[in-house]
C-alpha cells in the first residue's frame, strides 16, 4: 500500500520520516486538484484525516485559541471561533463552497501557502504562531517567518503542521475579500484588519496582492502616529482613505487572468479604508 491512513500523529510522523517521497493529505481540497489536473503524480501518501488530535480547538492557554490544523472551515465558521476570532470565522466562510469548507482546513491553507489562501491574512494580522512537529522534535514558528513565498514555507519535509495559535484580542477584527462572484470565488484581493483596543494598535494584512501575505507596517505606524487610537473615537473618511492609500502602496499586485494590478491596488485601498472605519464605528 502506498497510502498510509494515520490515526495517531506519531504514525504519520514516523511514516513521513521514512518516506522521502511522501505527501501529506488532509481534506484534499488542494492536492486532489493537482492530481486531477495531472500536475502531481502521487506515490506515497499519508492521510491525516483520521488523526483526532489535529481536529481539536483548545483554549487551555489564557489569551490563546489554538486551532488544530485539521479542523475544517465549516467548524471554524461557527462557535467558539466566531466569538473569539471573528475575522477567522469570516475568512473561513468565504473559502470555496460549503462542500470545500467541510473538508478544507487551516493546515491545508498553510501547507499550500498560496497568497490567495483565505485565512492567511488573518494569521498575519493576528500574529499567529504555527506549531510544527517532527517525530523527534517540535517547534513554534511565527506566521511571519513561516510563509516565505508563493507556495513556499519553512516547513521541512518531515514536519507536520499540528496547530495554529491565535491571540485573543480585546477589540475589533474583520476580514473582507473581493471576488467577482457572490460566493465560491478565489480572492482577487483580501484584507484582514485588527484593532487591538487594549494596546491601542491597528494591524492590517493583505492577501492576493503579492508573493506572500503582506503586513502593512508602514500604514499601521502612520496611523498610530496620526491618531491617538486609545480614544477609540470614530475615524474620519479622509484619514481612513489615506490609511487605505498607504496600505495599497505596500501591496505589490500583478496582472493576471483574474484581475489587474491596478484594480487590486485600488480594491485594497477601499477595503482597508472601510475596515478601519468599521473598527471604530
Amino acid at each position: 500500500m502506498s497510502v498510509i491512513v494515520a490515526k495517531e500523529l506519531t504514525t504519520a510522523l514516523t511514516a513521513l520520516r521514512e518516506h522521502g517521497d511522501a505527501r501529506l493529505i488532509q481534506g484534499g481540497t488542494d492536492l486532489m486538484v493537482e492530481i486531477n489536473f495531472n500536475h502531481v503524480k502521487p506515490t506515497t501518501m499519508i492521510s491525516l484525516r483520521d488523526i483526532k488530535s489535529l481536529r481539536m480547538i483548545r483554549t487551555d492557554t489564557p489569551g490563546i485559541m489554538s486551532i488544530g490544523s485539521g479542523v475544517p472551515y465549516s467548524v471554524i465558521e461557527g462557535e467558539p471561533v466566531l466569538t473569539a476570532i471573528p475575522a477567522l470565522a469570516q475568512a473561513a466562510r468565504t473559502v470555496g463552497s460549503p462542500q470545500i469548507r467541510a473538508a478544507g482546513s487551516l493546515g491545508g491553507n498553510l501547507g499550500t501557502c498560496s497568497p490567495a489562501g483565505d485565512t492567511l491574512p488573518v494569521m498575519f494580522a493576528l500574529d499567529a504562531s504555527i506549531h510544527l512537529s517532527a517525530i523527534d522534535s517540535s517547534r513554534v514558528v511565527s506566521i511571519h517567518d513561516f510563509m516565505t513565498g508563493v507556495k513556499r514555507s519553512v516547513r521541512q519535509h518531515d514536519e507536520i503542521i499540528t496547530a495554529i495559535d491565535f491571540p485573543i484580542i480585546n477589540g475589533w477584527q474583520g476580514y473582507s475579500k473581493v471576488g467577482v462572484r457572490n460566493a465560491m470565488v478565489i480572492s482577487v484581493a483580501s484584507a484582514c484588519l485588527v484593532a487591538d483596543h487594549e494596546n491601542a494598535d491597528v494591524r492590517i494584512a493583505l492577501g492576493s496582492v503579492g508573493p506572500t501575505i503582506i503586513r502593512c507596517r508602514a500604514a499601521e505606524s502612520w496611523l498610530k502616529t496620526t491618531l491617538d487610537l486609545s480614544t477609540r473615537s470614530t475615524i474620519s473618511l479622509d484619514v481612513a482613505n489615506e490609511f487605505g492609500r498607504r496600505a495599497a502602496e505596500e501591496s505589490s499586485p500583478i496582472d493576471d487572468h483574474r484581475s489587474t494590478a491596478q484594480y487590486r491596488r485600488h480594491a485594497i485601498s477601499v477595503l482597508a479604508s472601510r475596515l478601519l472605519r468599521k473598527a471604530y464605528q
Binding site: Q90, R93, T94, G174, Y175, S176, K177, V178, G179, R181, N182, A183, V185, S187, S190, V270, L271, R274, K278
Partner: peptide, 13 residues
Amino acid sequence: LPGGSGLTASRSN
C-alpha cells in the same frame, strides 16, 4: 449585498 460572503460592503456603499 454585492461582494456576497466577502463582506466587502455596508448598506451605505
